[in-house]
Computed example of a mutant assay.
Amino acid sequence: MRLLFALPGFHKYERGAEIALLSVAKELAKTGDDVTVIGSGQARPDDPYKFIHAGSIRRENFEKFPFIPLFRSETVYEEATFAANLALRYRPADFDAVLTCSFPFTNMALRRPVLGGKKPLNLFITQNGEWPAVSNDAEYRFFDCDGLVCTNPDYFETNKERWNCALIPNGISIERFKLGPGDRAALGFPEDRKIILMVSALIPTKRVQDGIRAVAPMEDAHLVVAGDGPMRDEVKALANELLPGRFTQLTVTPDQMPTLYQSADVFLHMSLLESFGNVFPEAMACGLPIVGHDTPRLRWIVGDEEFLVDTENLTAVTTALTEALAARAAAPAKVSERALSFAWTNIAQQYRDYLTRLMENQA
């Protein structure tokens, strides 16, 4: 199969969407498919796919811009600059299928009319949410796709009657995310406190400030937040007030992520609802107990043995963190079979099976 993956951040950022889609692209390329990736970074010599550069302007440059219909966030501004360059480099006739999780501009650029010949199948992945597929308001009414990859069962149930859907979760590299000693000294973490880890962008939906409030009563705990974003000043100010000397905010490279998890005692995630959340299986694969918001979607990912509560009740979060730390101290860390089921090799095979079915139906 001749496949194209397109996303503004490819080879420029290591965010959740970029990691997920590139992991699928790599696995498909390694097992024989002809894979091309278009992004705003630069080619890397060891990748098994072809890379094409299409520049974009960093979303951070748009944080002060007005948010208006169509341009609803700094992310959409960034995507618009990418889509303009994508349109110049994208040749539909070169591909059997194109895949993205970016809307509106990237999705529309990949669906442009073709004069003669057959258009490639257009797959949209609900990595960042299902909103384009379910809404008919404003620009969302222009959304279309030939196949919808639903990253959780909620999305699948909502969309299966309208779109040609497949339920395929995200995955992890089980070769990288595994049990290990960590390296608190290298990361600058204290050795004499319990480390509670959040891996979150500093944006409202991640509720990092509520995480700070929940950890504050735990005098023996040190909160680490790995991530950055427009709320960095508010987060720092609250941490200085409630967690003086017990807070670290940092960013790490992708190569450091396994060591980051391995250096913690508990993983905390405060988002009320996410399309998937790669961080959960990554943390589980490194042996960390999970404290998160109790939803059927999250239980589908982590199972019923983790410490899931109503995270809008901060007292309940503090209690869950205390229980998770006690459980970690009482037994050696272990990797659940559930975490291993998310290996990227398994996920990529599900993509290939789905693409094969779509192409057979198109023939």
Rank of each mutant, 00 (worst) to 15 (best):
G16S: 12
A25M: 14
K30N: 11
D34H: 12
T36H: 15
I38P: 02
Q42E: 13
Q42N: 06
A54T: 06
F62H: 03
F62V: 01
F65H: 08
N85F: 09
A87D: 05
A87K: 12
Y90L: 01
R111G: 00
R112P: 07
K118E: 08
N122C: 03
P132N: 12
D137R: 03
F143I: 09
C145G: 02
D146R: 01
Y155F: 13
F156D: 02
W163F: 13
W163S: 00
L167V: 05
I172W: 07
F177R: 01
F177I: 03
F189D: 00
E191D: 04
A201C: 05
K206Q: 08
R207P: 00
D210E: 12
G211V: 05
I212C: 01
R213L: 07
V215Y: 02
M218N: 01
H222F: 13
V225T: 04
A226P: 00
M231Y: 10
D233K: 07
A237S: 11
E241C: 01
L243T: 04
Q256P: 12
L260S: 01
S263R: 10
N278S: 15
N278M: 14
A283Q: 05
C286Q: 08
G287S: 00
P289E: 15
V291I: 08
G303R: 08
E306S: 06
T318Y: 09
T319G: 00
A320I: 09
L321Q: 07
E323Y: 02
A327V: 01
R328W: 15
S336I: 10
S341I: 06
T345V: 13
Y351D: 13
L355E: 13
